[in-house]
Design a binder for these strands. Sequence first.
DNA 1: CGGTTCAATATTTTCGAAAGTTTCGAAAAT
DNA 2: ATTTTCGAAACTTTCGAAAATATTGAACCG
Lengths: 260, 260
Amino acid sequence: MAKILPAAPFEGANENLAATTAPQDVSREDAATFDVLRKMREDILCCVLKPDQKLKFGELRQRYDTSVGTLREALSHLVSEGLARTEAGRGFQVSPISLADFLDLSELRVYLETKTLADAIRHGTDAWEAEIVSSYFLLSKLGAPKQDDSLSVKQEWGKRHKRYHDALVATCRSPWSLHYRSELFDQARRYHWLTMIHSRLHRRNEHLEIRDAVLARDSDLACSLMEQHIRTTVEQAVADVPGLIRGNARVLKPGKRRKS
Amino acid sequence: MAKILPAAPFEGANENLAATTAPQDVSREDAATFDVLRKMREDILCCVLKPDQKLKFGELRQRYDTSVGTLREALSHLVSEGLARTEAGRGFQVSPISLADFLDLSELRVYLETKTLADAIRHGTDAWEAEIVSSYFLLSKLGAPKQDDSLSVKQEWGKRHKRYHDALVATCRSPWSLHYRSELFDQARRYHWLTMIHSRLHRRNEHLEIRDAVLARDSDLACSLMEQHIRTTVEQAVADVPGLIRGNARVLKPGKRRKS
DNA sequence: CGGTTCAATATTTTCGAAAGTTTCGAAAAT
DNA sequence: ATTTTCGAAACTTTCGAAAATATTGAACCG
């Protein structure tokens, strides 16, 4: 295969970072429309809206207290992100999950997380280190989520977990890599949620190990740990979540399946 | 850096490909809404709607003959794809372009194009080869676009160019890689458009070389050529498009700049 | 003359209702 | 017993108008 990723790929690659074109991530502190979008995204990531679930405007309108047009805009956004799908004239539904999908997206995550992490370490600042320390503290304070924790505790853990991982790569200079990394991280959250529900496995404190490697600016070790972190999560999910192996995660969706 | 991309990353990675979650690309053969989306995307890629241009509903409504709600849905989609931006209560605009952005996205393209191409070659079929031959034929028949070709000729070349590159990677088994590859390819099209306008440089027939390497199933050579193909285009754009070097492509946007 | 206020204008955002499809089930036909 | 047809109900899609917000420009002070 062609040699890729030389250390200094293009001359002048890091000049002129002001005007970046990469998509807006969490989006602006915008109007009501984006409240709805954020809430829906969160609900999908936490499987409150379950995989394959039909998203009817009637119900959504009640749940998010908004109009059809606004919902449609949010749903359109979610489709681009891969969290929802839509077809012809038959509305929207939450994207399905499957083992194949989890494996595929995890594979790409290994690349993007290590690439962005290495670059972030290369360009790390004091403020970056401070945010890592701070966000790790908040994450560790909560401890690993357990099966019988309340929904809101799990959601809070999800938030802190994301904040910590975002902090690690915050000084990466590649907006596009960061953007896709973030999207895939969110995708993976849906599967992590399953693991949180089912798992009783005890894992080493990987977040701590990564934090220390990163603060020591040991890029190789940090990336290696990050890779393990992702792969271990996959293996754990495969081992622990019975429905995933059959590929359709029936566990989450006892309701009727679409006739094919 | 951590070792990535082993040949067979996860056991069972290629089973169960039926239910994939990756976002819908060109989307369904849907209703009017997606006509508008497709048209707008094409107009942005071909710089008919110029970088930084304000997208006012009044004008768009006339141009695409549709309602505000429909436009809003399409625009929302474009924002996720990174082709448009939006802020608070002040509407939408076409995403800016810059040298830094082009370098960044090209870097990621090198990885994704080579990764998907290698996998596509690994899983190539007769139908795949046939489509490569066919789409290459259509591309070569048109010849390289010249500065004084009409808009529609250039657009047709853009379509065939994309079809050819899509054909190369069509049998890649990673939906997520394919999806992001496609998005980045589109992003690059905006810059290619500039090159098409300004360039008089003569290039080797890289598409032919790639085609033959791919059909010979020579993965290393094909990926290497693909990498050169991308890098050469970048260098050509940097050399030929005067506005890009200053980073804001003023060439394309003589209009007033936003006060900062 | 430079800066601020305020009203007029332009533009975006949100909504509910009309129009168009699909889905479902009962009745008729094979 | 199975398939087909038909019509009603449920749902999605599209639209234009009302409400909210931003921008412009002219008049007014320091």
